[in-house]
């Protein structure tokens, strides 16, 4: 097809150097103005509050306001256990967010279901929505969350977020289709 659909981190780094100035600037802007939507369902919420509070202070990284409307946010934080019953709600919240959007699975419950291996718990939020960064820990230390935040910011700058990649691919596929004609 002539379209490159997979990338490795190294290739990406090389590509980053070739990113257009506009792209680089807009990604820079995106990574420092993450508005998060905390989808808080369980005990990890305490740790989220601690990260958002003054001591660890997520606001240092530009993720200043938790927005309680998915339409105004671009970072979905799935904080805590997701049950099967909540699946439709989670999916809907994600679909309501405007692109580009990112997802962090906060804690093992949101990443894999954690120690809940039963009929009611979804084995990870990635069963229903694509997740960019997983944070292990039950609950994770605030430092881990900050680490994940920085990883996510890295990805955003490189254009490697799930939704960024998808947009990119759609563009590439459309371009290839136009070429073929």
């Amino acid at each position: 097809m002539g379209v490159e659909l997979t990338t490795t981190r190294l290739e990406d780094a090389a590509k980053w150097a070739k990113q257009s100035l506009v792209e680089r600037a807009s990604n820079w802007g995106r990574k420092f103005s993450l508005f998060s939507y905390p989808f808080v369902t369980a005990c990890c919420g305490m740790e989220f509050m601690s990260v958002a509070g003054p001591k660890y202070d997520l606001a240092r990284f530009g993720a200043e306001f938790p927005r309680f409307s998915p339409r105004q946010s671009d970072l979905l934080m799935v904080v805590g256990t997701v049950t099967e019953k909540q699946g439709p709600a989670l999916k809907r919240v994600f679909e309501q967010m405007a692109e580009p959007k990112w997802v962090i699975a906060f804690g093992v419950c949101a990443s894999t279901g954690g120690f809940y291996q039963n009929y009611s718990t979804m084995p990870g939020a990635d069963q229903v929505i694509p997740v960019d960064v997983y944070i292990p820990g039950c609950p994770p230390r605030p430092e881990q969350v900050l680490d994940a935040m920085i990883m996510l910011m890295d990805r955003i700058q490189q254009g490697r977020g799930h939704s960024q990649l998808r947009t990119k691919r759609e563009e590439l596929i459309a371009a290839a289709a136009a070429n073929d004609e």
């Binding site: 997979t6 099967e84 699946g87 291996q117 009929y119 069963q127 929505i129 694509p130």
Partner: peptide, 21 residues
Amino acid sequence: DYPKEKRQPLVRRDDLPINPI
């Protein structure tokens, strides 16, 4: 007699990662 790990999902992703290779 209910298998305790038997989940009955309401939704799942319809777009799970497909490796184009």
